[in-house]
């Protein structure tokens, strides 16, 4: 990594806590480079993460505002922060268990709302921090601590899940596709709406050892064959597609994207951190210049 990017890291907390062969360090580096490519102001960017290995990518490594939340809830925390201050770039970085199992509800609703946040899901297909339990992303038949005879449940296809919920910008790469990953993250960070990037990341320690891919090189070889560019995937016949997973970017047609819900200007002065100091008199009380609100929810006060 270029030394020019070092100020964006808290170098005193390195090395990272990640195990040998973990892909999260690659994603960490890709995030920093993408932030630089996107030209975003680190001091106006909030990184929100949940619980698990991936949640440690921004916190404490990034020298920026970080919010390390309860398990599964980073998107809900991010929604509050973004609505309270639309001047913030809000970026969620968390794992597959955090974002799609315990936090799956917030993921689909953020996609549906098209709130302008970027969600990066480090998908290692297992619960790593707790020792390697089955996740909703674990491929069928794979072995984990809690699927000791091979998982019997089909996994989520995260990109299709988010697309189905209305996600405007959806993408997937493995961390081995570093250049594409950086390029896609750069686009996601500057996308004007909800953006979801799945970064498939190897976990040799808890996933690989039980599934014949105990080293990073094993994961590389396995993923290279399995994850194919979506254009190549689309040209394949169904038999060829069966054991393949497409990678790339899926963006909804511009005329089908609903406007992001958080376009309004911030009511918080950027420097003070305090709420607005005065409210206009209530509409409908007779001495206001604001026209009374009309809505279908019943007149205010007539509830």
């Amino acid at each position: 990594m270029s030394r020019q990017l070092y100020p964006h890291l808290r170098l005193d907390v390195f090395p990272t806590p990640y195990c040998t062969g973990c892909g999260h360090g690659i994603l960490l580096g890709a995030m920093v480079r993408a932030m630089d490519e996107a030209g975003l102001d680190w001091d106006k960017t909030l990184f929100v993460s949940g619980i698990g290995c991936a949640a440690w990518i921004p916190s404490p490594h990034f020298n920026a505002d970080t919010l390390h939340t309860t398990h599964g809830r980073p998107i809900a925390f991010a929604t509050g922060a973004r609505l309270a201050n639309p001047g913030l770039n809000v970026v969620v970085v968390s794992g597959d268990g955090d974002l799609t199992a315990i936090g799956g509800n917030h993921l689909i609703h953020a996609a549906r709302r098209n709130i302008r946040i970027t969600v990066v899901c480090a998908n290692n297909r297992v619960y790593g921090m707790t020792g390697g339990q089955v996740a909703p992303t674990t491929p069928e038949g794979c072995f984990t601590q809690t699927s000791p005879w091979g998982g019997e449940e089909p996994p989520f296809d995260l990109c299709r899940l988010v697309m189905g919920a209305g996600g405007a910008f959806v993408a997937r790469h493995t961390v081995f596709q570093v250049r594409q990953l950086i390029k896609t993250l750069t686009r996601a960070l500057t996308f004007d709406g909800f953006a979801f990037v799945e970064a498939v990341s190897p976990c040799p320690t808890h996933y690989g050892k039980l599934n014949d891919t105990p080293t990073l090189a094993d994961f590389h070889n396995q993923m290279k064959g399995q994850y194919v560019d979506r254009r190549r995937y689309d040209r394949m016949n169904p038999e060829e597609q069966a054991d393949k997973i497409p990678t790339g970017v899926w963006i909804k047609a511009a005329d089908t994207i609903t406007p992001p819900i958080d376009k309004g200007s911030s009511f918080i002065p950027p420097s003070s951190g305090l709420g607005s100091s005065s409210n206009p008199p209530s509409a409908g009380q007779g001495n206001s210049s604001n026209p009374p609100l009309r809505s279908r929810g019943g007149q205010r006060g007539g509830i």
Binding site: L46, V48, R73, A76, T79, G80, N85, N105, H109
Partner: peptide
């Protein structure tokens, strides 16, 4: 001000904390 109806109460309290730290 800002109003949002969240997907559940867990989302509501989480959004409040995010907003509180954003200065609201």
């Amino acid at each position: 001000g800002s109003f949002i109806q969240m997907e559940d109460e867990i989302g509501s309290i989480s959004a409040l904390i995010g907003a509180s730290w954003a200065g609201a």
